[in-house]
Measured scan of single mutants.
Amino acid sequence: AIERGSKVKILRKESYWYGDVGTVASIDKSGIIYPVIVRFNKVNYNGFSGSAGGLNTNNFAEHELEVV
């Protein structure tokens, strides 16, 4: 089962992080479509409006993740 702290591989082909491994930061139990927040070591794009980097978290559905 996917739980907080799990290392997961991203299976969503259109994702910037496809094939990468991230760490589960949290799981939303409220029934939303993409409840699993995954944190990565790298950012997906340069930040804007003065922020240092881009996003390094993204929401995924459990079926888009594979525990490694």
Rank of each mutant, 00 (worst) to 15 (best):
A1E: 10
A1N: 10
A1F: 09
A1T: 13
E3L: 12
E3N: 11
R4Q: 13
R4N: 09
G5P: 02
G5A: 01
G5Q: 02
G5H: 04
S6V: 14
S6G: 04
S6L: 08
S6C: 14
K7M: 12
K7R: 10
K7D: 04
V8G: 02
V8N: 01
V8R: 02
V8C: 09
K9S: 03
K9C: 10
I10S: 01
I10C: 09
I10R: 01
I10P: 02
I10M: 01
I10Q: 02
L11F: 02
L11W: 05
L11T: 04
R12P: 01
R12G: 02
R12C: 08
K13C: 10
K13D: 03
K13N: 06
K13I: 08
K13M: 06
E14D: 12
E14V: 05
E14S: 12
S15W: 03
S15Q: 01
S15A: 03
Y16E: 08
Y16H: 06
Y16F: 15
W17C: 04
W17I: 00
W17T: 00
W17E: 00
Y18D: 00
Y18A: 03
Y18H: 04
Y18I: 03
G19F: 05
G19I: 06
G19L: 12
G19Q: 09
D20Q: 09
V21C: 08
V21F: 07
G22N: 02
G22L: 04
G22D: 01
G22T: 04
T23K: 04
T23N: 02
T23C: 11
T23G: 01
T23D: 04
V24P: 00
V24G: 01
A25T: 13
S26L: 08
I27L: 06
I27Y: 08
I27C: 05
I27P: 02
D28Q: 06
D28V: 07
D28W: 04
K29Q: 09
K29Y: 12
S30V: 05
S30W: 04
S30H: 06
G31W: 07
G31A: 12
I32S: 15
I32W: 09
I33E: 14
I33R: 13
I33M: 12
I33A: 15
Y34Q: 05
Y34F: 10
Y34I: 03
Y34K: 07
P35C: 13
P35E: 10
P35I: 11
P35N: 14
P35W: 13
P35L: 10
V36G: 00
V36A: 01
I37Q: 11
I37F: 09
R39C: 14
R39F: 12
R39H: 11
R39Y: 12
R39G: 05
F40D: 01
F40H: 02
F40P: 02
F40G: 01
F40W: 02
N41S: 11
N41W: 08
N41K: 13
N41T: 12
K42D: 12
K42S: 09
V43R: 06
V43I: 13
V43H: 14
N44T: 07
N44M: 14
N44A: 08
Y45T: 15
Y45F: 10
Y45N: 15
N46K: 06
N46L: 09
N46A: 06
N46R: 04
G47K: 07
G47H: 07
G47T: 06
G47S: 09
F48Y: 10
F48M: 13
F48T: 14
F48H: 12
S49H: 09
S49C: 15
G50R: 00
G50K: 03
S51D: 14
A52V: 12
A52Y: 09
A52F: 11
A52Q: 13
G53E: 14
G53K: 05
G53Y: 06
G53T: 13
G53V: 11
G54N: 09
G54S: 10
G54Q: 09
G54A: 09
G54K: 06
G54I: 08
L55V: 14
L55R: 08
N56C: 15
T57F: 13
T57E: 13
T57R: 06
T57I: 10
N58M: 14
N58L: 07
N58Y: 12
N58F: 10
N58A: 15
N58P: 03
N59H: 12
N59V: 06
F60I: 00
F60P: 01
F60Y: 06
F60M: 01
A61R: 03
A61L: 04
A61P: 02
A61N: 06
E62Y: 15
H63L: 04
E64N: 01
E64R: 02
E64D: 03
L65P: 00
L65K: 01
L65Y: 01
L65A: 00
E66G: 03
E66R: 06
E66C: 09
E66S: 06
E66I: 08
E66Y: 06
V67G: 03
V67F: 06
V67S: 04
V67T: 05
V68H: 02
V68L: 10
V68A: 04
V68C: 09
